[in-house]
């Protein structure tokens, strides 16, 4: 006996409504692919490209607690802002973010990253300097590579000193697409 989609949806919604979850997640469709998006009660916690859902769910459980459940409501705000961003109607995200599980140095670099404006780019070295670690360009590269919230924390705006795009966790094509959307690339 398989439960009905309606009953399934009702239970998942009730679990979120009663604040029984450590972390909720859902999938969000965008022009550059389906994103796995997770949020805690503190804010947006993960955005993952090309996610293998089972593996991500295990990761979420290890980081935030065992009560992980797929449910749409806690992700709705992120879905709406991402839709607006990809429509060209939003240049900044207003979502609260949960970076509590991130190491201090990474958090600091991500904080600086969040200040890089829409449509502009910065080099790894420059971002390292802004985080008061001018010689840590390579470490900054690693932080970008492990960015828990790509797009919202705009690591696509960080490029090499020679002007090359260098790398991107979601693949260079996506980095290019995002910079093109923002008018930073012709």
């Amino acid at each position: 006996m398989t439960i009905t989609p309606e009953l399934d949806r009702r239970f998942r919604a009730a679990a979120a409504r009663e604040n029984l979850l450590d972390v909720a997640y859902d999938l969000v469709d965008t022009p550059i692919g389906t994103l796995f998006v997770a949020a805690t009660e503190r804010g947006l916690a993960r955005i993952v490209y090309d996610a293998e859902a089972d593996r991500e769910v295990e990761q979420l459980a290890r980081t935030f607690g065992l009560r992980v459940l797929r449910t749409s409501k806690p992700i709705d705000a992120a879905r709406r802002e991402l839709d607006e961003y990809f429509d060209g109607r939003r240049r900044e995200f207003d979502l609260p973010v949960d970076l509590a599980s991130i190491a201090a140095f990474n958090r600091r670099v991500l904080g600086e990253l969040a200040r890089v404006p829409y449509g502009e780019v910065v080099t790894y070295g420059e971002l390292a300097a802004r985080a008061e670690r001018p010689r840590a360009a390579r470490a900054v590269g690693t932080v970008m590579n492990r960015n828990p919230l790509p797009i919202v924390l705009p690591c696509h705006r960080v490029i090499g000193a020679n002007g090359k795009l260098v790398g991107y966790g979601g693949g260079l094509e996506r980095k290019e697409a995002l910079l093109r959307l923002e008018g930073a690339l012709l």
């Binding site: 239970f11 089972d54 769910v57 295990e58 459980a61 065992l66 992980v68 459940l69 797929r70």
Partner: peptide, 8 residues
């Protein structure tokens, strides 16, 4: 312990 999603 499996994540709750898996258990469910």
């Amino acid at each position: 312990m499996p994540p709750f999603e898996r258990f469910y």
